[in-house]
């Protein structure tokens, strides 16, 4: 009896917070489709649904351009972190050489360094390289992360050496070995690193607002931020919520397809990192 009561209590508790997590998003979407005067209401329905807010956002901000910029930056960063991260992780896990101990120690040391330490120096570096207002200024500083290398290293260590030896006997080069044999065996690690890198890059705001000022080069989160703060939305609540919805939609769609892998990647990343 007590067991059934506690199960009912768990469902009631979880349902309550289910509403608390989902309703704000539904309210945002519904309100973005309402005239400003109706947004004060808590309800989701309206007899005056309109696309006016979205038309306003699209007419004043290069949303499609920003979406493509975000896609270019996040994809380039992800491909780079996965490919180079795997190469370096392999060198640390499966190649016996003197430097590997030192390099691993160095990587673990850099993982401890808070990004706040190098934020301003890296920004001045980008300025000196002439990479402000250039998507490369967003891509280059994020092309590798110590966390990704360490995660690949840990995963590769569990791959038996005999598989690699067999390939080497067949005359496979080391680089080819990484991409043709090791990475396919390490799919979970590749997926985890790719998902976390992509989402981190996609959602970053601080770095883009420092490096990019030209509107046509802004990333989507940055564009929405400047749209809402910079006065283009004026006091149109609906337009603000419409821009926020436009920013949320691509990630929510992505999330709905890969929800299981995304949650698992985040759940495991902390443990391994």
């Amino acid at each position: 009896m007590r067991n059934r009561a506690s199960t009912v209590a768990a469902y009631a508790f979880l349902s309550l917070f289910f509403v608390a997590f989902l309703y704000p998003f539904l309210w945002m979407i519904a309100s973005s489709l309402k005239p400003d005067l109706e947004i004060v209401s808590m309800g989701l329905t309206s007899s005056n649904y309109t696309l006016g807010n979205y038309l306003l956002v699209f007419s004043r901000a290069p949303v499609v351009r920003a979406f493509l910029n975000s896609l270019i930056v996040a994809s380039a960063v992800t491909v780079s972190v996965v490919l180079f991260g795997a190469m370096v992780g392999y060198a640390l896990a499966k190649v016996k050489w003197k430097g590997s101990v030192y390099l691993t120690a160095f990587l673990l040391f850099t993982m401890m360094l808070p990004f706040q330490l190098t934020l301003i120096p890296t920004y001045t570096l980008i300025v000196k390289l002439g990479l402000t207002d250039n998507l490369l200024g967003l891509i280059l500083p994020n092309m590798l992360t110590a966390v990704a290398v360490i995660m690949f290293r840990q995963f590769f260590q569990s791959i038996p050496d005999t598989i690699l030896e067999a390939a080497r006997v067949d005359g496979c080069s080391e680089v080819k070995l990484v991409f043709k044999i090791v990475m396919p065996l390490a799919k979970p690690a590749v997926v985890t690193v790719a998902i976390i890198t992509f989402l981190t890059s996609w959602n970053d705001v601080l770095w883009p607002i420092m490096v990019i000022r030209e509107r046509d080069l802004m990333t989507l989160p940055q564009l929405v931020t400047t749209f809402v703060l910079g006065g283009e939305a004026e006091s149109h609540l609906g337009a603000k919520l419409a821009s926020a919805t436009l920013l949320a939609v691509p990630i929510v769609v992505f999330y709905s397809f890969f929800q299981r892998s995304i949650v698992q990647s985040f759940a495991s990343s902390g443990v391994k990192g």
Binding site: F84, M87, V88, Y90, A91, L92, K94, V95, K96, W97, K98, G99, S100, L103, F106, L107, T110, L113, L117, T118, P121, T122, L125, L140, P141, M143, L144, V149, D161, L164, R168, E174, V175, V178
Partner: peptide
């Protein structure tokens, strides 16, 4: 285990270049 110093450095070179520019230099 492959014993080859040059392979180790070669495969690690992306990180060495990256770390020189975006870790060590900003730190200094």
């Amino acid at each position: 285990m492959l014993r080859a110093r040059s392979h180790g450095w070669l495969l690690s070179s992306p990180y060495l270049v990256y770390a020189a520019v975006f870790v060590v230099f900003p730190l200094a």
